[in-house]
Design a protein around this nucleic acid. Structure first.
Length: 592
RNA sequence: GGUCCCGUAGCUCAGUUGGAUAGAGCAUCUGAUUUCUAAUCAGACGGUCUUUGGUUCGAAUCCAAACGGGAUCACCA
């Protein structure tokens, strides 16, 4: 049992013993740093039931804890706040315990499986900044859930069909001149993206022309020769026209090759990939099921609907009058498919908050259909990424391309490292790996440190910052500790085995205190689907270590027990930093 | 217009089920390297927690309204 839980129990005992009162939930909070102590119990809530002043209660409980437990070494009372100091022997034991625990940072199995769907790209354009937030969140949440004891299936649903895909296909047919990624030297996804943009431009031009000929804007938007052709192409694709399917396959293969490169760069992998071209027809049997259960109703024109007005969600179409699927139909079908394919109990979708309504409806429908998994579904709804200049708009060309961004970050990492003269050979393979590690560390940390639910601003200048509240700051601290540990090893200091109790400085107590919070932070990050908790935690830990490092000497400490403890503490911190960062999908260097 | 989300330092963000004088980073200024990595550390400056009212021992946090910003309300995905 961790210290905080032990304290809670001890305080509860104290209250029962001193006042003979039933105790519900004892609240222990961290002590504010201007007061002595690390844990604080607030006595205000007890004033009513005990009819005693808050200070007296604090004194009584403090005295009880000091006399009856081995935990508390001293205490002080400020108004209704009882501040508790933990004895150094307890802290020292905590550190030995962590180092001896082979499962440090891995919670026991819950015998429960969960699927996390994320990334889910369109095959008509390259990945951009918004996708990066999605990918980093999905990947990190998967890691956090795994550490929390769940079995995790990482899934990706590729949006590889539909009218938007046909647009780049048509543009390629019209203007492509048989270009290929090889002939142009372009990454496949960028090449396809180019045609998607071409289509959009040409289409707009045709709209203008039609308007000049006297057509209304609304009509013109639906009647351009290009749009009619694209609709024809989609029909052909759905009928399996060999030529169309051939082109579709060819162009998608280029896109996938491009995506594979980017996924490799950002270190994201999936256990299962679904393709919409294979799943878009699913869901019609779900519609039948719903009609039979009277969850859905059919309108005279043949379209099928659900009425969720009593849940504040309005009426929603689930099948078109011509019998074809809409987005909702497909999602109903793929959700069933996921739960057939894998022995999972829960499903998570990492999708932007512009789809909040869609998922509210999806989950409501599945509940009404009585799906056994319906209560285990969650939409991890994240906020959009803005630029300092405002929203990213593809039409105005303000979208930040993922590959470009990564390249820029690597370049910055290389320049910084050179300017600081940090390593010997700047062109070695090791150096290249380091630049990549730092670049991805900066980028991932920048996007993950913010609460996922919140809309965030991406400031290019800040994102490449390597100082302060950044990934590289934490990576640096890791490298710094590794350096100390290497030297300790040369000196023959071995931090395993029991540690003798020593007197600790405040910065040391603070560090151990933070370490003991690790498991709780993982748990909270898992239940709230919030990698930002661990990002904050890793930063706090690194900062606390740097403070300790600046104040105290480790290797030239004359007292052998203290020296050994500090090396052990450093080892526990380096492990915990590494694991925290790993949960964010960020690698850490041993030198930088 | 209906529904939902957001509003904390000049900027970017933390702030656990309501607790002490609201915290970090960046930016600005000052100091620290004969000593384990200065991509670091110490310090200064910086606040009407959008506003108003309510709940109570106690509110950035809960409730209500107003103002400001965003999303969504397709036989699109």
């Amino acid at each position: 049992m961790d210290i905080q839980a032990q304290l809670k129990q001890a305080v509860a005992e104290a209250i029962t013993s001193l006042y003979n009162l039933p105790v519900e939930n004892v609240l222990i909070q961290p002590t504010k740093k201007e007061f002595e102590g690390l844990y604080t119990f607030v006595t205000f809530p007890l004033t009513k039931s005990t009819r005693k002043p808050p200070v007296e209660i604090g004194q009584a409980i403090g005295t009880y804890l000091k006399e009856n437990t081995h935990l508390v070494s001293k205490f002080n009372v400020v108004q209704g706040f009882l501040n508790l100091s933990i004895s150094d022997a307890v802290w020292v034991d905590e550190v030995s315990g962590m180092l001896a625990d082979p499962h440090w940072g891995q919670l026991p199995s819950r015998n429960e499986s969960v699927m996390v769907e994320f990334s889910s790209p369109n095959t008509n354009k390259p990945l951009h900044l918004g996708h990066l937030r999605n990918n980093f969140l999905g990947d990190s949440v998967s890691r956090i859930l795994k550490a929390s004891g769940y079995d995790v299936v990482k899934a990706c649903l590729v949006n590889d069909r539909g009218i938007h895909i046909c647009k780049s296909m048509l543009a390629y047919q019209e203007f492509g001149n048989g270009e290929t990624p090889e002939s142009t030297g372009m990454k496949g996804d960028h090449l396809i993206g180019k045609y998607y943009v071409w289509f959009d431009k040409a289409h707009k031009q045709q709209i203008e022309e039609l308007i000049e000929e006297g057509m209304s804007k609304e009509e013109a938007e639906k009647k351009t020769p290009l749009l009619l052709k694209v609709q024809e192409m989609l029909r052909k694709w759905e009928q399996g026209d060999p030529e169309t399917v051939e082109l579709w396959k060819l162009m998608n293969s280029w896109v996938y090759a491009g995506f594979a490169e980017t996924y490799h760069e950002i270190g994201v992998r999936f256990d299962k990939t679904y393709y919409e071209s294979e799943t878009y027809l699913l869901g019609k049997d779900v519609i039948e099921d719903g009609l039979q259960k009277n969850v859905f109703y059919r309108k005279p024109d043949g379209s099928v609907w659900i009425d969720l007005a009593d849940e504040g969600l309005d009426q929603k179409l689930v099948l078109r009058s011509d019998g074809t699927s809409v987005y909702m139909t497909q999602d109903l079908g793929t959700t069933d498919l996921k739960f057939q394919d894998f022995p999972i109990q829960r499903g998570i979708w990492v999708v932007g908050n512009e789809q909040d309504y869609h998922f509210a409806v999806l989950f409501a429908i599945l509940r009404r259909l009585g799906r056994p998994y319906a209560d285990g579904l969650f939409h991890l709804s994240y906020g959009m990424v803005d630029l300092p200049s405002g929203k990213m708009k593809s039409r105005e060309g303000t979208v930040v391309d993922a590959d470009d961004l990564i390249e820029e970050m690597v370049e910055t990492a290389r320049n910084r490292t050179r300017d600081l003269g940090k390593i010997d050979d700047f062109e070695s393979e090791e150096a290249t790996l380091l630049y990549h590690m730092l670049a991805m560390g900066a980028l991932k940390y920048y996007l993950l440190k913010v609460d996922p639910k919140k809309r965030m601003t991406f400031n290019p200048e800040e994102s490449i910052d390597f100082q302060g509240h950044t990934g590289p700051f934490i990576q640096y601290t890791h490298a710094r500790i590794c350096s100390v540990l290497r030297k300790a090893e040369q000196l023959g200091v071995n931090p395993v085995g029991t540690l003798n109790s020593v007197e600790l400085a405040e910065s040391e107590q603070q560090l151990v205190y933070l370490l003991t919070q690790f498991v709780q932070r993982i748990t909270e990050a898992g239940t709230d689907y919030a990698p930002s908790y661990l990002a904050q935690y890793a930063f706090e830990l690194a900062k606390a270590y740097n403070q300790f490092y600046g104040e105290l000497s480790i290797l030239s400490e004359p007292n052998a027990d203290k020296l050994k403890f500090r090396v052990a503490l450093s080892k526990a911190v380096v492990e915990t930093i590494r694991k925290s960062m790993e949960l964010l999908g960020i690698e850490v260097p041993s030198k930088m």
